[in-house]
């Protein structure tokens, strides 16, 4: 049976694991899906502060394909995680293009990956604003 995932309001990810340290900080591992890929974010939360410690991306077979460790005291923002994942995915495409002896439009890849990742990280905000606009009759259809 699958465990029930609790959504973290601040970060928007589903909480996979939580560890409460004696110092009072909470160590949280959150996950979100990006197509077939799973993004796991390591966050340390204190009072009015959240720090990003790691980002790991797994493929559909649960193989670790990106393993990023952040500098100490890196403040958590979704945008920061998005940027890091986007940068590393494009780097991965570059590597693959060399291996496969093919070319690709890097700007196009940047825009398309950015658009999809934005939906993954900020989709709920977009839905909320659309819902709000709909309630006030601001949408045409």
């Amino acid at each position: 049976m699958n465990a029930i995932m609790i959504k973290d309001e601040e970060t928007g990810f589903s909480i996979r694991r939580v560890y409460q340290s004696s110092s009072g900080f909470q160590s949280i591992e959150g996950i979100r899906q990006f197509g077939k890929l799973t993004i796991r974010e390591g966050v340390i939360k204190g009072v009015a502060s959240s720090f990003l410690t790691s980002v790991k991306v797994f493929d559909a077979n649960n193989t670790l394909i990106l393993d990023l460790t952040f500098d100490r005291m890196t403040g958590y923002t979704r945008k920061l995680v998005l940027r890091a994942v986007r940068k590393e995915l494009i780097e991965m495409l570059r590597e693959a293009s060399v291996l496969q002896e093919r070319t690709f439009d890097e700007n196009e890849a940047f825009e398309k990956i950015d658009k999809e990742l934005s939906i993954v990280f900020f989709g709920e905000s977009y839905n909320a604003i659309l819902h709000w606009a709909d309630e006030y009759g601001l949408l045409n259809n």
């Binding site: 077939k36 670790l64 393993d67 990023l68 495409l93």
Partner: peptide, 23 residues
């Protein structure tokens, strides 16, 4: 403000497949 761990050969292969999917 981060560093990426160097992938193993198995991970390199998986990355190549994922890149192919993204293409």
């Amino acid at each position: 403000s981060f560093y990426a761990t160097k992938p193993s050969n198995k991970q390199k292969e998986a990355r190549n497949h994922v890149a192919q999917d993204l293409f």
